[in-house]
Design a protein around this nucleic acid. Sequence first.
RNA 1: GGCAGCGUAGCUCAGUGGUAGAGCAGAGGACUCAUAAGCCUUUGGUCGUGGGUUCAAAUCCCUCCGCUGCCA
Length: 556
Amino acid sequence: MSERIFIGVAWPYADGPLHLGHIAGAYLPPDIFARYHRAKGNEVLMVSGSDMHGTPITIKAEHEGKTPGEIVTQYHQQFLASWQKLGISFDLFTNTGTANHAEVSCDIFLTLLDKGYIYKASVSQPFCPVCQRFLPDRYIEGTCPYCNSSGARGDQCDDCGKPINAVELINPRCRSCGAAPQFKDSEHFYLKLTAFRDRLLDWVKQQTHWRQNVLNFTMRYLEGGLKDRAITRDIDWGIPLPLDGFEGKCLYVWFEAVIGYLSAAKEWAKSSGDDEKWRSFWQGEVKSYYFVGKDNIIFHTIIWPAMLMGYDGLNLPYDVPANEFLTIEGKRLSTSRNWAVWLPDYLSRYDPDPLRYLLSINMPETSDTDFSWREFIRRNNDELVATYGNLVHRVLTFTYRSFNACVPVPGQLDNHSQALLSSASDIFNTMDNLLYHCHFKEAIRSAMSLAQETNRYLDEKSPWKVIKQDRQASATALYVAISVLSCLKTALYPFLPFSSQKLHEFLGFKGSVEDDGWKLHFPPPGQKLLPPEPLFSKLDEELVDEETSRLGHVHY
RNA sequence: GGCAGCGUAGCUCAGUGGUAGAGCAGAGGACUCAUAAGCCUUUGGUCGUGGGUUCAAAUCCCUCCGCUGCCA
């Protein structure tokens, strides 16, 4: 029975490169999930895109003497290249700068306005009399009322880290011309979140399959902090309000970005030639998953669901398997202090699968976990290479040499051989269940335990020794081992797609692992093997110091 | 300051009431097909502290200490 799965992935902000925290938190998990479901033969639509609007981008553009458009285009291209290299298999990775997205966003805005879920209110906003424009919080500088530092902005003080309201700043001034801002009334629109409180509570209480951290966080917010929120800003970099008399105002990014999930589905449908195809992933029998980091939980468990409830007729999220954070060498990531491992940097020097392996087996599913280069290299050398890679290599090289480069013809299977094969089958089924429920870490650990068990089996059977007296016994043991490799290449495919594909070919299979489906494939005896090569390479331990020393150096 | 979470072997992490686990690191051993990989044996924890509930607590409750996050 085929299922339909919609996978929405958090939209990365196009003002800087991606780092490993992003990947571990939001990008690798949905890719594992999507590959698993596609292999099972389910229909998957996995979408995301670059978030191109918002004040940080205009500020960065001014800093670098570029236009906002140049900045976001540059990072959008970089994101696309990263997905390709890392193997993050989006069906569509678009961006919020498209005409389609503006159209869909305006439709939602107008519909919610029409139904009374959006209302207008007048608020006092800082206005620069020289520049003749309203100033976003980040465009105002002044003295921090808490620590007296002179470089505080209207949203927060970088020195003491405290959040600030623009009105509290001492000696406020416009960041571009230095003039003192005046406060003027400005009309803005608010999303009436409070109107959805009871419906949200009822709905969330039914989501017993959600992760505990997601449920807790959401309930706390619903019971305590639910407020109507402004959804428009006085800026010109964004989606203009589709109403007369509101020139110079745009939709606030947080309101508009989540709509991207819907607009991306529509864009995907259009490019497929069937404009209405998006409906099959938004209405009726389909499960919607949203993969995000924990900082994004409420946008996907409260705000976006409220918008969908108000709009009516589209599916609410089925699950939001949010991950916790990744720390680097024990410390919290910091972009400004360059305490991060940047993805393009990583991909310029290393293969994708070792990173996918580490971030999977040490995924921050239920609590923060740590990335260190020492751990990365150790896991690569002692687990990926030594346990799995070497298992593949020892089986294939010996078979290739001693059995004429073909899958050997097995004899009668003894108890031990049958036990290993049934263990492979059990583990495969266990992994199926774990992946279905988004328990990625435990799933990949199961696969590794099967590799270990197979190493033990080989040691006991010693086909390299037995072959001298009993060629048939050797052939049988190798056939059994090769069958397990075939199981592993499928089971590990969602995690390690590149090396699984290689193994698939070494074993003599044609086409792609994914097309062969999520089931056990025993290579037919006699099937011609390809000349085996190591699946993974060891990494020099000296890289630990070399890589670690890159951290913390600000280079721009 | 308020709220939440975390604190388990040297390291990275599992483990939500029933005799403390894995991988790696350390020690010893047999083997040699394999990227000196794999396999076997073994050392190592009074599960942050102090109390409580229970026949029984890493697991539930409270105090304190330390760390982290969110909010003010």
